[in-house]
Design a protein around this nucleic acid. Structure first.
Lengths: 198, 198
DNA sequence: AGGCCATCTTGACATAGGGTAAGAAATAAG
DNA sequence: CTTATTTCTTACCCTATGTCAAGATGGCCT
């Protein structure tokens, strides 16, 4: 199963087999049953999670006990609080398996060692962070300017498969609305569609 | 004036004078008068901007001709569309001087050369990007969960000096509300304050 | 199969914040 | 200094979305 992660790394960073073997000790595999919470807000964990199978989510809980889904991570995605990872700080988010999942836990030493032994690794990090930044910027723009319907359509475009794999209310909190509102938005959209069709 | 930038870099990355001199050709200084737009949405520019004096803002314009301020950058801050910078893509934002300003334009070659000749440079980049990511995440959380008043208070806490240097409506669009709403929020806050005082 | 629990939908109502417009206040321009 | 322009405040009404509550639906466990 670690092969999936190795394959991913080799694609992204020209890492050799030997280099990977040196880094292997800083990785751990783990299987998670659905609904398992692997990190809690406030835990100092300092690992990043790579999803090889299944789907995880990160979320915060606000003062009124409401959850807000920060990110979904299906196969081949990373999840975790990078800032907590880099600076050994408490995690700002909970992380939970939404489906039965298999993950790779990456220790901080992996990242530090890789930066030393593999010349392309830091460049990969920078580029991965930039991609993430750009996605977050897009999300901020949507939250600033777009209606509930527009945000939903954007989400469907970017992550069409996630929608069918997680409860609707999780997507709703991710989009900054209530489950009821998202339900209404979808109703309205199907109404429009049938109007166009008929 | 470039000395300010050199000083900044030396603090953040242990760059030597010689290394800086090698990189100097990839930098340019520029003075901007208030209200000058230096980059337009769609321009391919591929430079990052470091502010040595004054204050700039980046913003988008939506389908209804409304502006949304993405970021403010006072002295010692960076501004620019990193993704456009890294991938030579058209800028997603406009960038404008809100005050008379002096800036350093950093060419892409600066970043690439620095990564090669200065060992700590990539680590600096990663850490700068992480800081930024964490700020953006915080902003997303606020937009998802917080009321207009809470977002305003958060902004005042994070950037107390910006508020007094830019028009209120710019801050309002940055916070995802109208100028009128922000005005109401402030009125309400002073009302609360005088209640507590009296 | 039957019951249970989570999820999704729908309706009635409440509310934060938006849109518009007018005037006050501040800043810039002549 | 005087006028013009931009910014800020305030009032009024309106709309999108939230809240609460009741069913409907569907998946899952025994």
């Amino acid at each position: 199963m670690i092969e999936i992660f190795k394959q991913y790394l080799k694609e992204k960073t020209q890492l050799s087999d030997e280099q990977f073997d040196k880094l292997r000790p800083f990785l751990a595999m783990r299987e998670l049953k659905k609904n398992t919470i692997i990190i809690r807000q406030g835990d100092t964990f300092s690992k990043m999670i790579f999803v090889t199978k299944g789907l995880l989510r990160s979320y915060t809980v606000d003062g009124k006990d409401k959850q807000h889904v920060v990110d979904f991570a299906p196969e081949q995605y990373w999840i975790g609080d990078q800032n907590s990872f880099k600076l050994n700080k408490p995690s700002a988010v909970f992380i939970e398996a939404v489906e039965d999942s298999v993950i790779v836990l990456m220790d901080k030493d992996f990242y530090e060692t890789a930066g030393k032994i593999a010349p392309g690794y830091n460049a990969f990090m920078v580029s991965a962070l930039l991609t993430r930044l750009s996605l977050m910027q897009r999300r901020i723009n949507m939250l600033l300017a777009a209606t509930a319907e527009e945000r939903y359509l954007e989400f469907m475009e970017l992550f069409p498969n996630v929608m069918s794999r997680v409860p609707l209310w999780m997507v709703a909190t991710h989009l900054g609305m209530t489950a009821e509102s998202l339900s209404r938005v979808r109703k309205e959209l199907t109404r429009k569609k049938t109007l166009n069709a008929g």
